[in-house]
């Protein structure tokens, strides 16, 4: 049961990254990192307890968003969904991410929610998580000890649990630059338009003419974490994209997913539409009407 009264917690407001990393080093699991707050505050009202919340609000220069045709896209932990929607570079070079951001939640939430926060929430339903998974992003984790990179394939451990160590903070998200023939797309199913996904899909394909030379497919709400779809990827890789291969890929998805019944939909329904949505997403990426 939700409450109008937040439980008591200490709000930590580091003024620099160094201070933030020191706090994390000291407090470890006692602290929850608060970026946009759109998940954390709702969870706290529903009973989630944290002794300390470390807000990134006073940290400067963490809301950057930069694209370079060689090194790709870089964004900070404070970069909002709204910034993604406003970016012509993202729209042009990372359609999957832009499409996910465009329909993400509501305008108010897009103004404060962050892409990195979406990833680190570890929800299997995250729309931007699906896009970043297909696009093959890498998070840069910083701690008092130094930095390391965590590829999105290794990020989600189990429901709500990520590879972030409790003294670490994500300081950057990198997404590789597309090359000639890289296409991507995102689609989702919801109960109403402004909603959490009951199933979402992102696809990033490398095309050589109509031949797929590489595929990264991600699907949400069909497993405890956002997942890749290895069986479907195997079907598409090296194949010509046409109705037959798409039908095979749609069928192969069944081996990759393990959906459950929950508040938003049923396992039966998710199984029934997973292939359809994968097919449509690939078609959208490839520009097939």
């Amino acid at each position: 049961m939700s409450t109008r009264v937040l439980t008591e917690f200490d709000l930590l407001l580091p003024a620099s990254l160094e201070e933030a990393l020191d706090m994390l080093e000291r407090e470890r699991s006692a602290v929850t990192v608060l970026s946009g707050g759109t998940d954390l505050l709702v969870a706290m009202k529903a009973g989630f307890k944290t002794a300390k919340a470390m807000s990134l609000a006073h940290l400067r220069n963490l809301d950057f968003l930069a694209y370079d045709s060689g090194s790709g896209l870089r964004m900070g932990p404070r970069t909002t969904i709204a910034q993604i929607v406003d970016s012509a570079d993202v729209k042009q070079h990372y359609p999957a991410l832009w499409q996910a951001a465009k329909i993400f939640a509501t305008p108010q939430l897009r103004n404060t929610a962050t892409v990195v926060g979406n990833l680190l929430r570890g929800s299997p339903a995250g729309d931007c998580s699906a896009a970043v998974s297909a696009l093959g992003g890498t998070l840069v984790m910083a701690s008092a000890q130094g930095r390391r990179e965590v590829h999105v394939d290794n990020l989600w451990v189990s429901y709500g649990v990520t590879a972030r160590a409790d003294n670490e903070m994500a300081v950057e998200l990198r997404i590789p630059a597309p090359t000639k023939g890289t296409v991507s797309a995102f689609r989702r199913l919801t109960r109403v338009n402004e909603d959490l996904a009951k199933l979402n899909v992102a696809a990033c394909l490398q095309l050589d003419g109509s031949t797929c030379t590489g595929a990264r497919l991600a699907m949400g709400c069909v497993a405890p974490t956002m997942i890749r779809l290895p069986s479907a990827e195997a079907v598409l890789t090296g194949a010509t994209i046409n109705d037959d291969t798409l039908a095979l890929a749609a069928e192969a998805v069944q081996q990759d997913i393990s959906p459950i019944d929950d508040q938003r939909s049923t396992a039966e329904y998710r199984r029934a539409v997973a292939g359809v949505y994968l097919k449509r997403t690939v078609q959208q990426a490839c520009g097939i009407a």
Binding site: S2, V42, R191, V192, N193, E194, D195, L196, Q263, R264
Partner: peptide, 16 residues
């Protein structure tokens, strides 16, 4: 009750 909030009780919004 499992959806006694706007998170999981869905009314049509303006765009629907």
């Amino acid at each position: 009750a499992t959806n006694n909030s706007f998170t999981d009780y869905k009314m049509l919004g303006a765009s629907d």
